[in-house]
Simulated scan of single mutants.
Amino acid sequence: MSAYFSTCYKTARAVFLSKVQAAAPSWQASFKHPLLSAQGEALVLDAVWFGDLNASKLLVVQSATHGIEGFAGSAIQSAWLDKAALLSEDTAILLLHAMNPWGFAHLRRVDEAGIDLNRNFVDFKVLPKAKGYSVLSKALIPLSWQPDALTKADKTLADYRDAWGERLYEEAVSSGQYTHPQGLFYGGTTPSWSRLTLAQIAKDLQLAKRKAVAIIDVHTGLGDYAVGEVICDHPPASLGVNWAKRWYGAAVTEPFLGTSSSVPKLGLIDYFWQQLLPNACCFITLEFGTGSTENLFNVLRADHWLAGQATEGLDKTLQQKIQQDLLTHFYPADKAWQQAVIEQGLVRINQALEGLQQV
């Protein structure tokens, strides 16, 4: 099953579209990003629908909300297309391939403006404040990446962790911030291209009128290695949580209850769907673990530091190491990991489709 995994965005999209063509969709559209890849190629969010366009029950499978994490989601989507069974009556599936195509193509988690799409879904009339991040911002991305500067920065982070505890430290770093454009987990100050495009897709397809919608957003980088954690950010005891537990069983974890590897976050794409379908959706993040949270933070720190540097005179060996470390964390070359991703991804898709029949 590792054959479904590609080496770059261009290849991943080509594989996906070849599978789409063979499966004969009911509808498809390609939304072109205003920028191009580093090689001058088009960047596209592809939306593909299978089943009755008027179906009242819908499963949405999203990939590359965090660009570089798109390899796993794309592979799962392509694998499903190869193995897709006949959909039940009044049920459809919508595949959204490369929610953040710029990040996918450029091997970064953020988009072209440095925005983390999964922190971008807030009401921009009043931006949330992230006091913890402001305290740590200079240590998270120091001016220099030399050993002495890193040692000093790491001590600041360690002191904060010791003083406040691991969970509050993780919330301070990753829950979302809106004041440091070059920083980690930056949510932006306006809706991103991806957010606007998703809203347009939802409007064009009249998704708000559906009876029940399940959403699976595929991510990598957090949690136990090769385990696809089913993270549910719906409010505790809500309809979305109840559906998730009924469909996915004991695998469901809840950040708001402290049972997840993920802490509560601001501006998640989940909240778009919850607002669109407040009483008719079940959103889960299918998060495949690749390494420790500490390593996750460290590779992102390095990536954001690198993005802020002028390329002229930059140490090429250091640059290549930072880029490779980032890719390795979010996209392991381990065939066993890739096999596990496909197997678990297909199981969750089948569970969601079966669950929709119970609604």
Rank of each mutant, 00 (worst) to 15 (best):
Y186R: 15
F185K: 13
T151A: 12
K131E: 04
A251P: 08
L196F: 08
Q182G: 15
Q177E: 07
K152Y: 03
L184E: 08
L205V: 01
V241L: 08
G240S: 08
W243H: 13
W243E: 05
V213K: 05
K131T: 07
K155G: 01
D233F: 13
R161L: 15
L198S: 11
V135H: 05
A212G: 08
A172H: 14
V135N: 02
G228V: 00
R167P: 08
T190E: 06
V213E: 04
A199G: 05
A237G: 00
K245T: 09
N242W: 03
A214N: 12
Y178L: 10
F185H: 15
Y160D: 02
T253D: 08
T151N: 06
H180I: 07
P142T: 01
Y186S: 12
K155C: 04
A163T: 11
G188R: 05
R246H: 11
K131D: 07
G223T: 00
P142V: 00
G228K: 01
S134L: 09
D159G: 02
K131R: 08
Y248W: 12
D148W: 00
R246P: 09
I141H: 02
I201D: 08
D224I: 06
A250T: 13
A158E: 15
Y186P: 14
P142E: 01
V173G: 12
K155Y: 06
I141C: 01
S238V: 04
L184S: 09
G240I: 03
D148S: 05
P147Y: 00
P181K: 13
L127I: 13
W193A: 08
V227N: 04
Y225S: 00
K138S: 07
Y178M: 11
A202H: 09
L222K: 09
G132S: 10
F185A: 13
L207D: 10
Y133M: 14
L143N: 03
D148M: 01
A153H: 02
L207C: 06
S144F: 04
A208T: 04
K245W: 05
S175Y: 07
